[in-house]
């Protein structure tokens, strides 16, 4: 085979592979997601600040973001506060207190107890209805309730992502699989890492499993690892649903013991023990009267 023929063969193979990838992406990705890829038309929450108050409570300020240059209408905001109950591994979340908050792009929640706060929002943009939710851990100690809360009987039946919070101490970490589900959710969900904005490219697409759940493992982050133990990033999941979208923002923390070397640790431990043993035996031989 001549050299030119080899080159032509290589070029055509490269073209075939590229075209197959393009075709697979186009065919496998639903139309709604492709549209979202171009213009991220969804509502989402992010935590603006979280701090302790003078009375021992905690305030968390949230910011609601949406498609820019559009008019939002019929904005509704509801909060579900789930108290932590029980002790040790028998811990669980109690029945949630549900209350309505004043519709605004900036919402502040006051927490006076140890609880998991879930903030939900609904807004209409044109003909589309968008939904957003976020969960945040709070450790207030004042025993007081949110002064701006208007208690309601039950949370509205909005489409909302549910995440498996486990039992005692829910704190999503990098490198650990996160399982979430959405009732009648689409086969694909977009994931935006580190608070990606509408102008940012989406990070990845996750597929719904046969059991109806979406599983995602946020990768370890070098910057996060260098930071302290409270460092976190926002991971936002977005699902396109008929007539709108559903988003879910989850703060993901640096993994405790995310990147470890058990083998290295055991070698170090054994070396240390062996050196000490040698020292003790050696000292015993040199000073036999001990």
């Amino acid at each position: 085979m001549s050299r030119e023929r080899v080159m032509t063969f290589k070029k055509s193979s490269l073209f075939c592979v590229s075209f197959s990838l393009f075709l697979a992406r186009t065919l496998l990705m639903p139309e709604a997601l492709l549209a979202a890829d171009k213009e991220m038309n969804f509502l989402r929450w992010r935590v603006a600040s979280q701090e302790r108050t003078r009375d021992g409570g905690m305030t968390v300020s949230f910011e609601l973001r949406g498609p820019s240059g559009t008019r939002w209408e019929d904005v509704e905001i509801v909060c579900r506060a789930m108290p932590r109950e029980g002790v040790g591994t028998a811990r669980s979340y109690g029945d949630p207190d549900v209350y309505r908050k004043r519709a605004s792009k900036n919402v502040t929640i006051y927490s006076g107890r140890s609880e998991l706060i879930e903030l939900l929002a609904e807004a209409r943009v044109g003909d589309a209805r968008h939904y957003a939710s976020i969960v945040v851990n709070c450790y207030g100690e004042s025993g007081k309730t949110d002064p701006d809360a208007e208690a309601i009987d039950d949370a509205p039946l909005w489409p909302v992502f549910r995440v498996d919070t486990g039992s005692s101490y829910f704190r999503a970490q990098t490198g650990t699989p996160i399982e979430l589900w959405l009732e009648a959710g689409p086969p694909f969900v977009e994931v935006f890492e580190n608070g990606a904005t509408a102008s940012a490219a989406m990070t990845s697409i996750i597929e719904r499993s046969p059991s109806g759940k979406y599983s995602y493992t946020s990768p370890h982050d070098e910057e996060l690892a260098k930071s302290g133990y409270t460092a976190k990033k926002d991971v936002t999941f977005v699902a396109a649903i008929p007539g709108g979208s559903v988003s879910f923002c989850l703060p993901v923390y640096r993994a405790f013991y995310g990147r470890t070397s058990l083998g290295g640790g055991l070698v170090l431990l054994s070396s240390s023990a062996a050196a000490t043993l040698a020292l003790v035996i050696g000292a015993g031989r040199r000073f036999p009267w001990r």
Partner: peptide
């Protein structure tokens, strides 16, 4: 897991080395 070296950053690595040496 606490018998492992924690490679997250220099501080965690330093502490895990100290911990395992002291444990030995």
């Amino acid at each position: 897991r606490y018998l492992a070296l924690n490679l997250d950053n220099r501080v965690t690595l330093g502490f895990s080395i100290a911990l395992l040496a002291i444990t030995g």
